[in-house]
């Protein structure tokens, strides 16, 4: 692998996606647990979730915008194909994003009346469940090669161009996997944030259940990939880095579960984040060197070099502003709490 500009930028897009998944993914997962809040501590669970999310969810959300902006600036050919063929799931996902964000803020600032609060809570929770599934389906559609293989033409049929590529069993499987991973992340993070053992135990149980769900769904997706995403499966099973990748992912997963079991929550948080990260990069590596398999490579989709160089400079300058600010944000809200 040679590190051309295009590869470096594709890597940066993946890093931004990774940050989105680890941070905003957990915010979505929080919505899932809001939906499943049960028992005497229902209200306490919901309060914990919204306290954890409130100061940071907007900043977390911007990672997605960064992914989109980088895609259309640096890989315009891929972006336009994705935007045409995945129009429907992306639009639905946008609806989910809009409803979730607004419902959350309306619930925080809305009237104190219980019915209104409950209604917004519902919208927030349901949108939090639907959006990750749609996101996963889009990723699934790219991985199967359906996006890369479908030629766009005005004469082609509607269903074969705008529905078939993404509405597959495999796509649904990846969608559910995303949902399970996000819920898992959220539950693990919340064990660290919870004040009081009872709440902590609530989320520990949930994290363990979610870990089980991830395990089951991941194998389901792998089985489906046999028929539906042969290329990616091939690489995942036989690529040169396949074995080491599976080993580190496995270690991370086992560490996360063991740490939860023995109540080492901070360790569990690191391990869970690592596990999700390895899964994501596994997908990226399995696709390499394609951006949209089986036709469009990263190099072929890339914008002219001049643009790529400038974007790199802009990213470097932006990072100098951004990273210290982000560090500050998380220090103010996530580290002082336990002291």
């Amino acid at each position: 692998m040679t590190f051309t500009l295009a590869i470096i930028l594709a890597g940066i897009v993946m890093i931004a996606l990774n940050a989105y998944v680890l941070l905003a993914g957990a915010d979505f997962g929080g919505g899932v647990w809001d939906f499943f809040a049960r028992g005497d501590r229902r209200q306490a669970q919901r309060d914990l979730i919204s306290h954890a999310i409130a100061p940071i969810w907007e900043a977390n959300h911007v990672w997605l915008i960064l992914v989109i902006v980088l895609l259309f600036t640096c890989f315009p050919a891929a972006f336009s194909t994705i935007a045409i063929l995945l129009h429907i799931p992306l639009t639905l996902m946008l609806l989910g994003i809009v409803l979730r964000g607004s419902a959350f803020i309306f619930r925080s600032y809305g009237s104190e009346r219980d019915t209104a609060q409950q209604r917004w809570g519902r919208v927030f929770a349901i949108a939090s469940i639907a959006t990750p599934v749609l996101l996963g389906m889009c990723v699934g559609a790219v991985a199967t090669g359906a996006i890369g293989a479908t030629a766009v033409s005005r004469s082609g049929s509607f269903v074969s161009q705008f529905i078939d590529p993404w509405l597959t069993m495999f796509g649904v499987g990846v969608g559910l996997l995303a949902l399970a991973l996000f819920s898992f992340l959220a539950a693990v993070y919340l064990t660290v944030e919870a004040e009081g053992t009872e709440l902590q135990e609530d989320f520990r149980t949930r994290a363990l259940w979610a870990a089980g769900a991830v395990f089951v769904i991941a194998f389901g997706v792998l089985a489906l990939s046999w028929t539906e995403a042969p290329m990616v499966r091939q690489m995942l099973m036989a690529g040169p880095w396949a074995l080491p990748l599976h080993i580190v992912t496995g270690i991370a997963a086992i560490t996360a579960i063991a740490a939860l079991w023995t109540r080492h929550f901070r360790l569990a948080r690191v391990a869970a984040a690592a596990q999700v990260t390895f899964i994501l990069w596994g997908w990226a590596a399995a696709q390499y060197p394609y951006l949209l398999p089986p036709t469009l490579t990263i190099e072929a989709a890339a914008a002219p070099n001049r643009t790529l160089v400038l974007i790199l400079w802009a990213l470097a300058a932006g990072a100098c502003v951004l990273l210290p600010s982000l560090y500050y944000l998380f220090r103010v809200f996530k580290m002082q709490r336990r002291s």
């Binding site: 100061p55 940071i56 907007e58 900043a59 959300h61 911007v62 915008i65 960064l66 902006v69 980088l70 259309f72 600036t73 640096c74 315009p76 050919a77 972006f79 336009s80 194909t81 935007a83 045409i84 914008a303 002219p304 643009t307 400038l310 974007i311 802009a314 990213l315 932006g318 502003v321 951004l322 600010s325 982000l326 500050y328 944000l329 809200f333």
Partner: peptide, 30 residues
């Protein structure tokens, strides 16, 4: 899509910078 395909590499720059400005805004608003 056609607009972005052709113009993306040209006008992506201000949009990227805008992304950073939003990021900063969101962080400090929090």
């Amino acid at each position: 899509p056609e607009f972005m395909k052709q113009a993306g590499p040209l006008v992506g720059m201000p949009f990227s910078l805008e992304g950073f400005a939003f990021f900063t805004e969101a962080i400090f608003l929090g």
